[in-house]
Structure formats: structure tokens, C-alpha cells
Amino acid sequence: MLTTRIIPCLDCRDGRVVKGVQFGNLRDVGSPAEQAALYETQGADEIVLLDVIATIEGQAAQAATIRVVRQELSIPLTVGGGVRSIEDAERLLDCGADKVSVNTAAVQNPGLIEELANRFGRQCIVLAVDAASNENGGWGVVTHSGRQHTDWEVGDWCRFGADLGAGEILLTSWDRDGTRSGYCLKLLRHVRDNLNVPLIASGGANSPQHLWEAIQAGADAVLAASIFHSGEYTVGDVKSFLLDCGVEVRQ
């Protein structure tokens, strides 16, 4: 039976893990390679590395980060942040990413999803979707790190992305992200309906209970950052809790 994945997320900039930590003095939790290796030891099923870069220098730092993480890591590595073209994706994969995630560029040019899937296979393409609640009681897709609203209804966009070739959806609740109040379960259930690719829940996790709730709401995998970075829970703690709840996880 396919197990539920627990995925720590590393937010990086210039070769360091830069956020996801709520306590001031723990701002720098170590190098991405050390963090990734630690989480693998704890039982992480995959690592997501988000590295938003704006400059050429940033690109070189990102490549170096991925290479050094890859050397250490013997579990899957997904990398996202600023993927706008086949060439961007190829660069990340050459450095050692196993999957690439696309977000804003895919909304601007949905054909990119199709191109990436045709070139690298759909198992390699993660569509990252940021959803924000709207005045109609539903959710719209937002881009540019939440700064821009789009006309896309979130369920429609996820299905369209999957039809174009996205192998899985990484769904972040923009309302919950950073609030530590739990995943947005209504959003997860809404997107899960009629979606036939794996769904990764993201945004708002603060306890093992929150991860369990997201799994009950239909998530195939759960992504979390701060609860692991803060040292409050190890991946192993979370897995023990989930096992006790009857969730099948890799041991």
C-alpha cells in the first residue's frame, strides 16, 4: 500500500535556510544540506526546497545548494522557486533535483506545464498552487507570493493543471500559511474532489494533530516547515503519532 508522505520544506536564500522559524534566535537553523540530512535521518519521505531567486548570483548559489543537498540525500528532492522555462527546470534537475515545482509562471503560461511534462515526464512536475479565500466563500488562485489575485477558481486550476501534465498538486492555503492554526481542511476537501493526481497539503501546520486532519481531509502527503525547524517535533514524532492514529507511513 502506498504510504502517506511527510515532507519537511526548506525555504532557502543564498545557500541558507532563511525562514519558517518563528523564534528569533534560531533564525539560521543550519545549512540546507545539514537540515535535509537531519530530516532524512528522522524519517522524512521527501524534501521540498523552495529557493526564490531574483539574480544571476542567486542562480549560482541555488545550483550549489542543490548539488550539496543531493550529495547527502538518498530520498526524493523537489525544488521550486522561479522556474519559468524548460531551461530553468533542466538546470535544477541537472544539479540533482528529482522533481521541479512551478507556480506563478504556470498561471501566466499554462502551456509551460505541458512542455515540462512532455520533456521530463509528469512524475517530475509539481504544480504549486497558492489559494486565498474570496468574498464568495470559495478560493481563488493567487500568484507572486500572494500579491496578485487571478481569475482562477482553485479547484478548476488544479484539475486543469493535472490535465496539462502536472504529476501532483502542492496546495498552500494562503490564509493559513504562517498562522500555525492548522491546514485549511475545507480547501483540501474541495480540491480533492474530482482531482485524480496526488495532493500535498501545505500551510498552517503546528502539530501532529494538524497533519492527521489534513490526511483525513484527503491529502496524500503533508508538507510542513516551522514545526520541524523549531525542533518542537521531529519527523519521527509525527510519524509515531500518525501510526497510532492508523495512518500508514513508512517506518
Partner: peptide, 12 residues
Amino acid sequence: PARRLPQLGWNR
């Protein structure tokens, strides 16, 4: 033979 494809993850 599964409903959700691709299979992405850990299996026994």
C-alpha cells in the same frame, strides 16, 4: 490499476 496516478511515494 489505481485511481490516483502517477504513483508518487513510498510503497512496501
